[in-house]
Amino acid sequence: MTENTKSSRFKSGRGKPGSPFRKGSGKPAPRRPGLPPEGPVLLYGLHTVEAAFANKDRKRLKLFATENAQRRLEERGVKIDVTVETMMPRALDRMATKDAVHQGMILEADPLPAYGAEHLKGARLILALDQVTDPHNVGAILRSAVALDADAVVTTERHAPEEGSVLAKSASGALDMIKHVRVKNMARFVAEMQDQGFSCVALDSDGPASLEETPFTDKTVLVLGSEGKGVRQGVREACGLTARLDMPGEIRSLNVSNAAVLSLYVARMKMGL
């Protein structure tokens, strides 16, 4: 049964926002949104929290929410299976980063399990990001990948955003709706996927053919790089296939999150998905 306690504000001392300990617990408090997940993370916003409750792989710990937010979740059929602390909006403001749109709810949860290449069995369309570091871009890409029914988004363990509130909020629930796989070495990952029958296509503005002209198989990995550097040379060489996105207008390049949307759309058309 869910325990529901009321709190209009944080008290001073150990329960004060910014303190490393929660009042009376003697244990480290969850890290503030936007910081690396060394322990529990704080997820906020309606779609993010709703998706986290629907994800069987997400270990949820505690919900901090206004009475109105609790009603909204219940009206949307969310089964709240953790302790709930009822709070006023200003108290939630102090838990979140400045200007965070928490919509009256913050969920304390453990980071998602570490997914690896072994979790991609049965996948057909995978989007890999080679050292894309901006959490807003990666979050938007995760959301687009879910919308276009990709099977997974792959990032490197280093030079990629940690799971946290900014990434989760930017993804608007998608972080809990798609496999986010982290790999140590992107070139090695590409080679492993090729061994499993995937064609791997690196997006590059100097590619020899447009993505529409590039041959696809029924299992494809699309690889996009960071803005500026693009896909690294070793990763491009591992892919074998390089393609470009032709833009008819005066601006010839796209933001990486927009390029991901267009690439996934073209790939689905080419693969007959």
Rank of each mutant, 00 (worst) to 15 (best):
K229D: 01
P89H: 10
L42A: 12
D93P: 02
A174T: 04
F64H: 15
F216A: 10
R268P: 00
D204S: 13
G234S: 08
V235S: 02
H102M: 00
K59N: 09
A174W: 11
L125I: 06
P40C: 05
A109H: 05
S7Q: 14
V138K: 12
R143Q: 08
M88Q: 15
G77F: 03
D57Y: 09
E212Q: 13
H119G: 01
I80W: 13
V49L: 08
L127H: 05
E192K: 12
D57S: 10
Q196E: 12
A267H: 06
V261E: 01
P135A: 05
P248K: 06
D93T: 09
G26M: 08
L224Q: 07
H47R: 15
R244C: 07
R14C: 01
E118C: 00
R94H: 11
G39V: 02
V266F: 06
E237V: 09
F216I: 00
A69S: 15
M95I: 11
T48H: 11
S170K: 07
N255E: 04
G13I: 04
D149K: 15
I178W: 11
P89T: 10
R143I: 04
A100G: 02
R232P: 01
K98I: 08
R143F: 03
P36M: 06
D218R: 14
R94K: 15
Q70G: 14
I80N: 11
G225H: 08
G116Y: 09
